[in-house]
């Protein structure tokens, strides 16, 4: 039972971690919270679900399309709601992002209606026993995919030219420009990558809970933000750790404390972290 809950928590936690990476990367480079991250997640899920519902697209292609659509939405969002406001008081882009978030949510509501959509294809998932632990292959697949994407991101940031350039912009924008790095392009690239990860998270959750709906981004967005704070906002390994910890805490809390207030657990953790250690578990910005 305990191990099962732990596994459930790791599964949802790995998805929170993917969204938290988007928050943390964008915060790292712009010093701003992208309030519409949850809507980008929702967009990824909808694009994949709608494509699959046509019956003409295979699963992997739909998954990739969800990620790309989310990434493009992120880039567009940066152009419209963030870039024109660079240099203004930090309240201004914050409120503008809130506006964008509401806009996207209500646009989805108008286009797709308020009801849950089931995931269009039925997977047959079995339960296998690994070391005496019943493991659903669905959870295994989500966990593997999420960890794989995180690994790719770490490799990208640490070992590629553009990854290092993004970190350089986050650390010291002017000096990065002196290296010939185009900061605007790096910001766009950051939004692209962070949003693609959120889009992937959206598709995974659409499968896991078998539900896609316009407001689906609100709670995961809030929880992922808490995860990013927990790990130290701006810190990439911190966001991953924070997401996993939060998922586990939520799952154990729901099982052993109260299931009615499951969604409140992340929030309680957020307040606790802000009170006790606002810089998060792993400090710092940048890499």
């Amino acid at each position: 039972m305990f191990l099962q809950q732990l596994l459930n928590g790791l599964t949802t936690g790995s998805v929170y971690a993917l969204i938290a990476l988007g928050y943390t990367m964008i915060y790292g480079i712009l010093g701003l919270i992208n309030f519409a991250q949850g809507e980008i997640y929702m967009c990824g899920a909808f694009v994949a679900v709608l494509l699959l519902a046509t019956g003409k697209v295979n699963f992997y292609l739909a998954f990739a399309a969800g990620m790309v659509a989310a990434a493009l939405l992120g880039v567009a969002l940066e152009r419209v709601a963030f870039r024109p406001l660079r240099g203004a008081h930090p309240l201004v882009p914050l409120i503008s992002a809130i506006g964008a978030s509401i806009f996207l949510q209500s646009l989805a509501l108008l286009l797709f209606g308020p009801n849950d959509r089931p995931f269009p294809i039925q997977f047959t998932f079995s339960t296998i026993t690994v070391a005496g632990l019943p493991l659903s292959t669905l959870q295994g697949a989500i966990l593997a995919a999420a960890l794989g994407l995180m690994g790719l991101l770490m490799v990208f940031v640490r070992y590629t030219r553009y990854g290092k350039a993004i970190v350089a912009c986050a650390l010291d924008r002017d000096t990065a420009r002196l290296m010939g790095i185009n900061v605007d392009r790096m910001v766009a690239l950051t939004f692209f990558i962070g949003s693609a990860l959120s889009g992937a998270a959206g598709v995974m959750m659409a499968i896991y809970y078998n539900a896609t709906y316009p407001r689906m981004g609100l709670l995961p967005g809030l929880k992922a933000f808490s995860a990013a704070i927990l790990g130290g906002v701006g810190n990439i390994p911190g966001a991953i750790l924070g997401g996993l910890l939060l998922g586990v805490a939520e799952s154990l809390g729901a099982a052993y404390v109260s299931s009615g207030y499951k969604d409140a657990i992340a929030f309680a953790i957020l307040i606790g972290v802000l009170l006790l250690r606002p810089q998060g578990i792993l400090k710092g910005r940048g890499d």
């Binding site: 290092k164 350039a165 650390l171 010291d172 000096t175 290296m179 010939g180 790095i181 940048g286």
Partner: peptide
Amino acid sequence: FRTLSVSANLELGAFH
């Protein structure tokens, strides 16, 4: 770039 490695700093010098 303080958190980047010495060699990453050098590589960034040749970014463009």
